[in-house]
Structure formats: C-alpha cells, structure tokens
C-alpha cells in the first residue's frame, strides 16, 4: 500500500473522497456550461478547468463553518466546497432569478452568497483583495475567530489593489490568506510579459508576510500550506501569500480561442497535469478508488449535473418589473 499522505495531514478517507467528488463536480458543471454555451443557450462561460485541485485543496483547509472567501471568477471548486449548489451555479450562467450570486444581475462567475460567507465581487480583477482585507480587519477589531481567504489569478497580482491591500494586511498583521492561482496566462498574455518577479510568492516579502509556492495540481499539498496559513492567521501571526502553480485547460472564456496564443504542443502537454486524473491516481494508489468506483462517481455526478441543468433551465428569469429595485434601500 502506498504512503497515505492524506492521513499524515489529518484527513480521513471520507475527506479525500469528498475532495475528489467536489473536483469532479466542479469540472462537470463547467463542461456542461460550455455545452450549453455552444448550444446557444448560455451567453457566457468562464472556466475552472485545470485548477480544481488548487481550489478544492484550499477550501477544505479552511473552516467552512466560520471562514469567509472572496473568490475570483474561476473558483467553482471553492464555492462548491463552501455550499453553493450545482443548480445555483448553472442558473447563474443562464442569468436566472434563482442565481444566488446576484439574482441574474451580474456576469457569471461573480460569486457571492451571504449565507455561505462567499463575498460578492466586481469585474475589474483584484478588487476583491481589499474587500477581504476589510473583512480581516473586522475580525481583528471584533476579536472574532475567522479567517478570510481571497483568491486571484497571476495577472491580477499586477493590479494596484493587490499591492494596496497586501500592504495594509501586512502593516496590521491581519488574518487574511491571499491565494494566487498561477496558470501562467492572463487571458492571452504569458507570465513573463505580466510579472517581473521570478515568482509571485516572493512578493510576500515586500508586504512583511510569509509567502509560499505550492504545486497547485496536488490538492493535498495545497491543503497543507493553506492549513498552515490558517493556523498562523488564527494565532495572530498575520497574513500569508500563497502561489499555487496550476494550469488552464480551456480558453480564458467562451469568447476567446486559445489556439490563437497557445501551441498545440503546449495544450497536449498540460493535459498530462489534469488534476482530476492525478488525484484519481493517488486515490487508486492508496486503495480508495478503482476504475469501477471512478465510473460510479462519474455516473452519480453526471446525474446530479443533469438534474441541476433541468432545474436551472426551468427556473424563471428575473421579472422585468424588478429592474428598478435595489438601487437604493426601499
């Protein structure tokens, strides 16, 4: 029997199977939204594919009963782990009234759900980072025991808000984890045309915080480092910057074509790093999964996604007369 790394991290067999299921669910919801988009039923899709291990590994390391997340548009894995439902995500893609993020008022991928402590965001990238720091400041002011987790892409770390927010978090030693999912592409522009530093994690030093680089295709490695960051935050040891090296399997969104700016070879190469296959292999090695069990999980999640699609498709759009609602308090 192979080394059970997850046990050493304090994770049960059920925990890692749940992580795997969440990754597969994120992938299959995403794939379904692409199908609906290509069928002309859904206006826009933006993808999590390739980054599920980083997202789910990180989310499982948080306390999902008290912590807050300020995610970015790829974080289907994070919001599923925090309680958003498959049908809610698909309804958001359709712009249906039942979309918990905004009632169909925002772009898909702009996650926000108060009851699950998912903090609503905006479209310019990195604007969620100062919001998360505001949450962390609130925790410190009120002596509350929660951590705020915010995530963003590598390109977004060039925004002024990233700098302004991390500097503030560093000055006040706030309980906030900034998690960069580095897929080495900002839509079409590669890392070396985006970021001057050799990696993102070393930027932490300038903000007086710890920085870690981790293999984002390995949910257990991500879990370990986020868990450590969370403990440090709760213990008053301040913020952490984590860079998870990952891959983007799809185009940026349904509105661009990555073959314009990525080679065939590159696209073939990254498929070898598909996190669902890699984590499936680990679970096979430790005897928790086999081909038959993987197929059973796939079938079960396909059913779940089919049902979710049906619910979301049947759900009504927001009523036109709600157009004028909620500009100001009523």
């Amino acid at each position: 029997m192979a080394n059970k790394r997850h046990v050493a991290l304090g994770l049960t067999d059920d925990d890692v199977l749940e992580m795997y299921r969440t990754m597969v669910l994120a992938r299959k919801i995403d794939e379904r939204m692409w199908l609906l988009n290509r069928a002309g039923k859904m206006p826009f899709v933006i993808s999590c594919q390739g980054q599920e291990a980083a997202q789910v590994g990180a989310a499982f390391a948080l306390d999902r009963n008290v912590d807050y997340v300020a995610p970015y548009y790829r974080d289907v894995g994070v919001v599923l782990a925090f309680g958003m439902k498959a049908e809610e995500l698909i309804a958001s893609g359709f712009g249906k009234a039942m979309d918990p993020n905004s009632g169909g008022r925002q772009m898909p991928g702009h996650f926000g759900q108060k009851k699950n402590r998912i903090i609503t965001g905006s479209s310019p990238v990195a604007t969620q980072v100062p919001h998360a720091v505001g949450f962390a400041l609130a925790a410190k002011l009120e002596g509350k025991q929660f951590v705020t987790f915010t995530s963003l892409g590598d390109g977004s770390t060039n925004q002024g808000d990233f700098h302004e927010a991390l500097n503030f978090a560093g000055v006040h030693k706030l309980p906030v984890i900034t998690f960069v999912e580095n897929n080495r592409l900002a839509i079409s522009v590669p890392y070396d045309k985006q970021v001057a530093s050799e990696n993102i994690a070393i930027r932490a030093k300038a903000y007086g915080m710890k920085g870690y680089k981790v293999d984002g295709q390995d949910p257990l490695a991500v879990y370990e480092v986020v868990k450590l960051a969370r403990e440090r935050a709760i213990n008053g040891e301040g913020p952490t910057l984590i860079e998870a090296e990952t891959i983007r399997l799809t185009s940026h969104s349904s509105d661009d074509n990555q073959s314009v700016y990525r080679s065939e070879e590159e696209l073939e190469e990254i498929k070898k790093n598909d996190p669902i296959i890699l984590f499936g292999n680990y679970l096979k090695e430790v005897g928790l999964l086999d081909e038959e069990k993987i197929k059973a999980i796939d079938d079960e999640i396909n059913r779940q996604v089919n049902e979710a699609t049906e619910i979301a498709e049947k759900a009504p759009y927001p009523k036109p007369e709600t157009l004028y609602d909620y500009v100001y308090e009523q």
Binding site: I119, V129, F135, L137
Partner: peptide
C-alpha cells in the same frame, strides 16, 4: 475604498 466595503459587509 475597498476596506470600507469589506468592513461594511461585516
């Protein structure tokens, strides 16, 4: 501005 938003949501 961003901090104000985070604090307000709390």
């Amino acid at each position: 501005g961003g901090l104000a938003i985070g604090l307000a949501l709390q």
